[in-house]
């Protein structure tokens, strides 16, 4: 029987809200898209790689990113679209790394397929660059041990899970999701922390992710009883 530790630090569940800020940048060709991708802020890259996840979290476990979607649908470059949609976001620790990976992919494609430079999107289908402004708010759920953590995880909103899994890791550049960080550094649950950080959250809907994490925690809790 493994004993549960009381956390050195309590864990506060946060929630997040977002607002879209327009930039006025619009692309009609792949080259224009590429140039703006080099120039825009991380907040823009974040918006276009995570927007679908926020808005359609209940629909699909495999959300395409806006760049991939536009390249396939508006320019008809399905192969490049598929390549960008399949980029494994979880392997990157910063948004800039993700940006560079996408840029590299597009550059290589253009080199191999120069005719792709000549494709224009219809006027109604231009790509509009948008920035994500995130607002973080503490919720009433503050927990001190694994059991309380599991109880809170059952009821917090999907926005809260979204914040700790996606925004904390990539936007706040913590390199790891908040749950794993707290479990490891504050309650000494190293194995559990590792199991959670090894999940690819981009392939779950938010509620499936909640269920999956709870399952891992409950397994650990059963062991401690």
């Amino acid at each position: 029987m493994d004993k549960l530790n009381k956390g050195l630090e309590p864990f506060t569940f946060y929630s997040r809200l977002h607002l879209s800020e327009l930039t006025g940048y619009r692309a009609t060709t792949l080259v224009e898209l590429l140039n703006f991708m080099r120039e825009v802020s991380d907040a823009c890259i974040y918006h276009h790689t995570h927007r679908f996840l926020q808005q359609h979290q209940f629909l699909s476990p495999e959300p395409p990113n806006d760049f991939a979607h536009w390249i396939s649908r508006a320019l008809g470059e399905d192969t490049l679209g598929e390549m960008l949609a399949s980029i494994d976001i979880i392997q990157f620790c910063t948004l800039d790394e993700l940006r560079q990976a996408m840029i590299k992919e597009i550059e290589a494609y253009l080199k191999k397929n120069p005719r792709a430079k000549k494709k224009f999107a219809n006027p109604d289908e231009e790509f509009h660059f948008i920035k994500a402004i995130s607002f973080f708010l503490p919720t009433q759920y503050v927990v001190h041990n694994l059991k309380e953590f599991a109880q809170a995880l059952e009821v917090v909103t999907v926005d809260s899970i979204y914040f700790h899994i996606f925004e904390a890791r990539l936007r706040l550049e913590k390199g790891v999701n908040d749950f794993s960080y707290w479990l490891e550094t504050s309650v000494g649950e190293n194995d559990l922390a590792k199991q959670i950080s090894q999940l690819d959250p981009y392939t779950y809907t938010m509620n499936d992710l909640r269920t999956k994490i709870l399952k891992l925690i409950n397994k650990r809790l059963t062991k401690s009883n």
Partner: peptide, 27 residues
């Protein structure tokens, strides 16, 4: 995404953004 309550929330967020110009805002 398209109910009045979301619209209201966006207005409140715009008002709050007027006092903080960062991309990430702690409330």
């Amino acid at each position: 995404n398209f109910l009045l309550t979301r619209h209201l929330r966006d207005y409140l967020l715009v008002f709050l953004s007027l006092y903080d110009s960062h991309d990430i805002v702690y409330l």
